[in-house]
C-alpha cells in the first residue's frame, strides 16, 4: 500500500505489515490503517511515528512510555483489550503519543490514553485507562537532560 506522506515522502508498505486500529484513533474513527516508522537517522531512536496510510497528513509521533516514565504501569481492563486478539505481556507493544506544541518546552506525552499493539497480529487500539495518569505529562526537561548525558 502506497502513500505520499507529508513528513516522510512516498512510502510503500506491504499490506501484512500494516497496523490495524479496528476502532480508529479516539476522535478519528476512520483512521484505521497505519505503518510504524522508525527514524533510524534521528538522534533519538526511541521516537517513532505512526503514519496513517489513509491520510498522508496524519502522523502521530510515539515513544515507549518507559523511556520517559520508568515506573509507568497502566492497568488495562479485559474489555479494553477486546479488539486486540490474544494479547499478553510478551506480544504487547505499549506506546504513548507525543504532543509537540510550537513551544517545545511544553512537549508532553499522553499517559492517560496509551496505544497498545499486538505485535503478532498487528491489531492495535488507543485505550483510555481508568488510573489517574495525566493526559499531558511534560517531558522536555527530561529529554534535554538525557541529550546532555
Amino acid at each position: 500500500m502506497k502513500s505520499d506522506t507529508r513528513l516522510f515522502g512516498e512510502i510503500d508498505i506491504e499490506e501484512e505489515k500494516l497496523i490495524c486500529f479496528e476502532n480508529g484513533i479516539i476522535g478519528f474513527p476512520d483512521m484505521k490503517k497505519f505503518s510504524l516508522i522508525y527514524d533510524s537517522e534521528g538522534k533519538r531512536k526511541q521516537i517513532s511515528w505512526l503514519q496513517s496510510m489513509e491520510d498522508p497528513e496524519f502522523a502521530l509521533p510515539v515513544i515507549n512510555p518507559l523511556a520517559v516514565k520508568p515506573d509507568y504501569e497502566p492497568m488495562f481492563s479485559e474489555e479494553s483489550l477486546a479488539a486486540l486478539g490474544d494479547i499478553h505481556e510478551n506480544n504487547a507493544i505499549v506506546l504513548t503519543t507525543i504532543t509537540v506544541p510550537k513551544e517545545l518546552e511544553k512537549m508532553s506525552v499522553n499517559l492517560k490514553a496509551p496505544i497498545v499493539i499486538n505485535g503478532e497480529t498487528r491489531q492495535a487500539a488507543q485505550i483510555i485507562i481508568e488510573d489517574d495518569f495525566p493526559v499531558k505529562y511534560f517531558i522536555y526537561d527530561l529529554l534535554k537532560k538525557k541529550a546532555g548525558e
Binding site: 476522535g27 538522534k43 504532543t99 490514553a113
Partner: peptide, 26 residues
C-alpha cells in the same frame, strides 16, 4: 469529558507546526 479530552489531545498531536519542529529537532 475524558473522551473529549483525549480527542483534543490527539488533535494537538497531529498539529502540523509542532511535528515539523520535532522532526527538525531529531
Amino acid at each position: 469529558e475524558v473522551y473529549l479530552q483525549i480527542q483534543e489531545e490527539n488533535k494537538a498531536v497531529v498539529n502540523a507546526d509542532g511535528l515539523e519542529a520535532l522532526k527538525k529537532l531529531l
